[in-house]
């Protein structure tokens, strides 16, 4: 699924990375807890979060996430936006809440990062 399709499904605003809408996204993961993203995040994912500080963008960069989607109409703070531009990470913002955003993308065929938590 391309970022453009994700944008259309979620009626999302493009915050930065307009040139990257043809980027192919093969999986997504959603969390407001960056500790969890660092533990479960896989390279190439769309990071879906409601955490808007600089750490959300830095975490995306560290785990090699391809793009970030902020839910509930949220937008990155100034430091986060600067870092995203510097690192070339596209950012979208949707007014949907986390569960709805995840559900709409999953229904459209975008899988999660897969697997169950190890015992």
């Amino acid at each position: 699924m391309t970022l453009k399709q994700i944008q259309e499904i979620l009626d999302a605003e493009i915050i930065c990375g307009e040139d990257s809408l043809d980027m192919e996204i093969t999986a997504a993961g959603g969390s407001d807890l960056m500790s969890d993203v660092l533990a479960f995040g896989q390279p190439g994912i769309l990071l879906m979060t409601g955490l808007t500080n600089t750490q959300s963008v830095r975490t995306a960069d560290i785990v090699d996430a391809k793009a970030i989607l902020y839910v509930r109409g949220k937008k990155p703070d100034k430091g986060g936006l600067e870092l995203a531009r510097e690192k070339g990470i596209p950012i979208l913002s949707t007014k949907h809440m986390m569960f709805m955003a995840c559900g709409l993308l999953f229904r459209a065929g975008l899988p999660g990062v897969g697997g169950l938590q190890d015992e």
Binding site: D32, S35, A39, N53
Partner: peptide, 15 residues
Amino acid sequence: EMGFGAGMGLPNINR
């Protein structure tokens, strides 16, 4: 609030 402090840090370094 920063998205950290969930008790995952050291285990994740180890992993």
